[in-house]
Design a protein around this nucleic acid. Structure first.
Lengths: 252, 252
DNA sequence: GAACGTGGTCAAATCACTTGACCAATTCCG
DNA sequence: CGGAATTGGTCAAGTGATTTGACCACGTTC
């Protein structure tokens, strides 16, 4: 029968969740001091010991730092690009995925435009080669891991062709996180046959627009691609939800 | 400062939530008997008094019925189409919105096909009149409430033109729920100027395909329309989320 | 009709949280 | 520079939520 054990949610857990979200969304910034414990406890409507339990958990996660007599601060270390504590935070929240795709959509759209305009013949050759590798892999039924790696290579080639070092380093860090599966399991995009075909088609459109030196078309193609990825991921999440419900129905 | 009071979630609340979801998803069906209290308490990992508190709340909501000596049953009354208890359940869960749109997409796609093939000249005249009313309203800046009402009239005209009484009654009930704002506030679709324009465009496409007796085009136009509605709603939810975060940042 | 299994009720014990107090460290102000 | 104020850190007693365990009444089954 499809019943799951429930656990009494601790008050401190709810406090942790709220403060984590404020950090994730940039409302609480690195180095910033939180309200004093007595004040914060009052605002949250909890006792100081309960609040302190939550603050302790957040310190263990590397998100907060407490100094007796001085106050509680958002960890300075969160200022660096993608410190481990922030990566764990991203991994635990779905809205980071949506924001990531939106962000990537904007930046890669821009990169594609720039690659169409400023890309050298050498850059364009690298992009063409990356696409050729994907076509070849597609033909011989490679693994989803391999195709995901080629996909990253293709997108990195475009980013390099954009000749913007800030953009490049930012996106390199992003792809690092994507490889670690922080945002989503990128291989799922290549497991489904029709999706594989659609992705290749979109990559062809992107490459054609860049190599044809059509910045507007390049941008539009990238945006359409990211829209498709977002939709496919949403579909995946829904399908997984449906699978879980079907299993529950079967369990009776 | 952007901190919200937190309240200790009661154990019984978590139990209520789980059983509600099982009912919403059709895992627990009307008339079906739940496991005995002692058994269920064990599976959920809670005490009988806590479980009974949850079962009591579910009975008050009209979802369960208990009979001393016989057992606890999912309410028989949930068998009827959209009983109040089920409507309240829909209203409280976002996944019902997604399912509703998917369901409506399928049924209205079918209805549009049928309207293209089987609709009489009279039916088609009604559809054309409904579209004309929407064009007229669009031109003179009507209220979102008024446009939502005309929208429902347009879709009902198509459903009537499909000449399938089961479909018609089913969708009438659906539109009744939509009017009550169970799934979403339907007027939000008409508040945004570009969205208004897009909706009218899509309604024109739907009408043109039906009146041109092109079933495949009619279905495709309806599906594209529902996809757009779903996307616009998702955007709305995200925008509201962003607005809330912006307010929190401002609050410091 | 008796036994078993069910829902319904309740008291005592345990755990999570609150209240209130006190101590040590840091900051601020005169 | 020292004292006052504010901060974090710790802890005991009280309160409410939950668990444990028991008992009673009703319905079903053999």
């Amino acid at each position: 029968m499809p019943f799951q054990p429930v656990t009494a949610a601790r008050l401190s857990g709810a406090v942790v969740e709220q403060i984590e979200l404020l950090i994730l969304r940039g409302v609480l910034r690195p180095g910033e001091r939180l309200p004093a414990e007595r004040d914060l406890a009052e605002r949250l409507g909890v006792s100081r010991p309960s609040l302190r339990e939550a603050l302790g958990a957040l310190q263990e996660k590397g998100l907060l730092e407490a100094r007796a007599g001085a106050g509680v601060f958002v960890a300075e270390g969160l200022r660096s690009v993608f410190p481990p504590a922030l990566v764990r935070l991203f991994a635990g929240h779905r809205e980071a995925v949506v924001d990531y795709i939106g962000f990537r959509r904007d930046l890669e759209g821009q990169a594609a435009e720039r690659a169409a305009v400023h890309g050298t013949d050498g850059d364009h050759a690298v992009i063409a080669a990356a696409l050729a590798a994907m076509e070849e892999a597609h033909g011989r039924r490679s693994t989803p891991e391999e195709e995901a790696e080629l996909d990253a290579g293709f997108h990195m080639a475009i980013l390099e062709a954009a000749h913007n070092v800030v953009l490049l380093h930012m996106m390199r860090a992003m792809f690092g996180l994507l490889r670690e599966g922080v945002f989503y399991n990128r291989q799922i995009m290549f497991r489904n046959q029709p999706t594989r075909a659609r992705l290749l088609e979109q990559h062809r459109s992107i490459a054609a627009a860049i190599l044809g030196r059509d910045p507007a078309a390049a941008r539009a193609a990238v945006e359409a691609h990211m829209d498709f990825v977002e939709q496919a991921l949403a579909e995946q999440v829904r399908a997984e939800g449906h699978e879980a419900v079907a299993r529950q129905r079967l369990e009776r």
